[in-house]
Amino acid sequence: MIIQGKCHTFGNDIDTDVIIPARYLNTSDPQELARHCMEDLDPGFAGRVQQGDIIAAGKNFGCGSSREHAPLAIKAAGVRAVIAASFARIFYRNAINIGLPIFESAAAAAGIQAGDEVKIDAEQGVIVNLTRGESYEVTPLPPFIQEIIAAGGLMPWVARKVNRDV
């Protein structure tokens, strides 16, 4: 999987309340959620973000609430992947479960500036910053997680298991 796009940058400890404020959680419609993505931190984000863009952020991205609406809102806003120095654990699970590609790289988080064009090579585990001519290593995903991703998310993976068990 190769993902190439323009980066939007955010800082440390981006919590799920700013990714999608709870006042919009009376729906789970991804398109409606996408309209309010990052609203309390960057009110212009949802209007500015383009299909195929990438988010690059600091440590502990997605901390706080378990709301799966957070990765859903990011994905439906058109974001193809999230790069962060580290992810909060529930967000990490949720992103994998719904098929939002995430990449952990402290070097990338430190090096990428807003507007940079980056190319992520998931198989090779490397992020190339085309704007700056830098490249960053990605922390590899455990094989089991790769299996879920290869199945297309948790539900297709479980469906196979359930059908086998029945």
């Binding site: 378990s66 529930i90 699970r93 539900m155 479980v158 298991k161």
Partner: peptide, 28 residues
Amino acid sequence: DSHTCTYGALGAVATGIGSTDLAAAMAT
């Protein structure tokens, strides 16, 4: 719900997960 960890007070392992994890767990 992320605050599911509350039940650790009873000497249980309790942790928050997302909706898709809940869906899978309700089935399996």
